[in-house]
């Protein structure tokens, strides 16, 4: 392990431990790491957007590729900065409306065609299939679960009478699903901790033998 590699590992270890130190209590090392992290996250975007969007998608095709009409999205992009000047901030609405309108145009059918229909289709299964009683039972459970969940989230009408009973069943289903979510979330969070501890034990503590 070279000197520069050891230095890099120690830099990573310092910032890792500085952030973990918050678990004990707030302190200057944590604050420093937190603020540097925020700055790097913002600064990281500049080079990326400049390179991948402004140069590759706007400047090069417009100047060298003959796509002169790209000055329109270029202007719309610059209008976004009008938000920084209260008097002219309304101009940024045009750019925002363009992004919103286009995204809405994509969403309108892809959400229905790509999510609603396939999910509904797979809920409507024939009960008398070859998979036997267990599969049929599962299919019934799924149908009841989907309908009761949708009813629970349907807020336009008071949850009383039949609607109330179905919504109640929906809550049971939701509790089971959220429980599963919690179980999985524990695994997810622990995985991330394992990643950091793995670094500290294998790389950082491992570097001690190289140094001393």
């Amino acid at each position: 392990m070279s000197g520069i590699e050891i230095f890099q590992i120690w830099v990573m270890a310092f910032f890792t431990l500085a952030l973990f130190s918050f678990l004990y209590k707030d302190n200057p090392a944590y604050k420093l790491a937190e603020h540097i992290f925020a700055g790097l996250t913002a600064g990281y975007q500049v080079g990326l957007i400049w390179d991948t969007i402004v140069i590759q998608k706007l400047w090069d095709p417009m100047i060298y590729g003959g796509k002169w009409w790209l000055f329109i999205p270029g202007i719309l992009g610059f209008l976004m900065f009008a938000r920084l000047f209260p008097k002219y901030s309304w101009l940024s609405r045009v750019s925002l409306a363009f992004v919103m309108g286009t995204t809405a145009g994509i969403f309108l059918f892809t959400q229905l065609h790509g999510l609603v229909l396939p999910q509904m289709q797979s809920t409507m299964l024939a009960l008398g299939g070859e998979d036997g009683f267990a599969a049929a039972l599962l299919a019934v459970v799924v149908v009841i679960g989907v309908i009761s969940t949708l009813i629970y989230f349907y807020f336009s009408k008071e949850h009383a009478g039949v609607l109330g009973v179905t919504a109640r069943v929906g809550i049971w289903f939701i509790m089971i699903s959220f429980g599963a979510h919690f179980g999985y979330t524990v695994m997810g969070r622990v995985s991330l901790l394992i990643g950091r501890v793995q670094f500290l034990i294998e790389d950082w503590i491992g570097s001690f033998s190289q140094m001393f």
Partner: peptide, 16 residues
């Protein structure tokens, strides 16, 4: 293609 360009500027705006 336009929305990719215009949207990219929003990230720069956030940075500013």
């Amino acid at each position: 293609n336009w929305v990719i360009i215009v949207g990219g500027f929003t990230l720069l705006l956030g940075m500013v």
